[in-house]
Nucleic acid binder design. Structure first.
Lengths: 252, 252
DNA sequence: TCAAAAGTGTTGGAAGTACACCCATGT
DNA sequence: ACATGGGTGTACTTCCAACACTTTTGA
């Protein structure tokens, strides 16, 4: 195995998702992109990213780069895939380890907006640099798939939340309405949430209960090591069927 | 993004799984390891792997390396994870893109056995080089998880097979007995297999039908691009709920 | 005729879906 | 009072696990 540098560039990039209201005011999935200020793909929009530092793990590099370019500290960060096709960058050979991240709405507003950083609706992107359109598409698919068997929706929310808010997250990501009654029962049966005892007053209707995450399922389940342990601990009512994929969980 | 070489070594490694009879004669999961012939971890057993070639994609590098070191051409190959912790290799910084592969029993015998290549039972490995024990554990978890929602078992079998053989693969991987009656119905209902019309004669019992894979689900679903397409095509009876994957995925 | 594995039928429970209905609040 | 979501009850369906039972072969 090689210790020598290979002439292959190594970078990390991150697909960051947040929920923001779209034109109609309904919450939908958005992501921040940065404008490239050098060749190749000068002036094109691209995923935030940069080189892997010698003294940092891949994930640490992703986190640092995110903080530097967007000021964001995601509540959820997981490796997505390593992209390494020969022709994905003109002239040079570039391998990108791509992560995907979720941030809360309040956090999302921290993004230093300007000419070179902007939010885009995830389903309607311009032509991006490199193979980044493909990467986003894949990350979106992963987000939606994982939403169905995992508890990542909480990464979009604060400490406390109503069931309607939680359902709103699911609906925004999955892009389909969910039955409030059934959604409630599924969440309660999963053991992932518990009522805080508080309610929200001020609405012109019955005050909804507030819930919190029980912590039975860890949010930051990135990496193969923690993965299976977390998945096993997450099994609340059932015995010991392996859950989903990817590391963090997997993966499905 | 960096075009310059970074001083970080970049390698591919592969976890190869095959089914072979264990001590008791029952089929179980094995994998081939190679003995290291240089530092670090001189003489330790390790996953087959090597540097990424400048002119090859990551997957192509994995395939070529597999052919060179073990003569194997897997029927299934999918990216597992990128490992890049700072201290995973002493002295040097090494990032490994790890793939996992499945090979058929006949193919498995091709492995050029010798002092430096040997098969090991996947559940009982010695202390491996680098973080390879962790990697194998993760790959095993992924194999078992994916077996439950995907059709990868076929990668272990030939063109035609009986339901008992297919069930044997599942049982070996999942390490638990399955009800023949229910297993049959699940497979038939999935639309993934169809009878060839032939039967196997010569057993001292009722001749079982032979089945073939319908091709509704592609085996080689590695990579984000093909992933979702494959998953959609796999939906035989039902309309259009996103399936599983991990592009593999995804890792789930 | 018997053993052994292939293959079919039947039943009961878990979990998801659809939808009717009651509850608590602000206006 | 009534509109608006919060929250409960319930029937229907679909899927899965268990297991009894029948079929077809070789010995």
């Amino acid at each position: 195995m090689p210790a020598a540098a290979s002439g292959i560039g190594l970078a990390v990039s991150t697909v960051i998702f947040a929920l923001r209201p779209d034109d109609a005011g309904a919450p939908s999935v958005w992501l921040p992109l940065v404008r490239r200020i050098r060749e190749p793909f000068l002036h094109r929009w691209a995923l935030p990213g940069g080189p892997v530092a010698l003294s940092e793990s891949l994930e640490a590099s992703a986190r640092r780069n995110l903080l530097e370019t967007t000021r964001l500290q995601p509540t959820y960060l997981e490796q997505l895939y390593a992209f390494g096709d020969v022709d994905r960058s003109p002239d040079s050979r570039l391998v990108s380890i791509v992560y995907w991240a979720l941030v809360r709405p309040e956090e999302a507003e921290r993004v230093s907006l300007g000419e070179n950083v902007r939010w885009f609706p995830a389903d309607d992107l311009p032509d991006l640099a490199f193979d980044h359109n493909l990467i986003v598409e894949y990350a979106l698919w992963r987000l939606r798939t994982k939403m169905e068997y995992s508890r990542i929706a909480h990464a979009f929310l604060g400490e406390q939340f109503t069931l309607a808010e939680l359902r709103g997250v699911h609906e925004a990501v999955l892009q389909k309405p969910l039955d409030p009654a059934n959604f409630r029962r599924q969440m309660e049966a999963s053991g992932a949430i518990e009522p805080t005892g508080d309610v929200v007053v001020g609405g012109r209707h019955r005050p909804p209960k507030l819930y919190r995450y029980t912590g039975a399922v860890s949010l930051a389940d990135a990496g193969p090591l923690t993965a299976r342990v977390v998945a096993a601990a997450a099994q609340h009512p059932r015995p010991a069927t392996d859950d989903a994929p990817h590391p963090q969980e997997d993966a499905r």
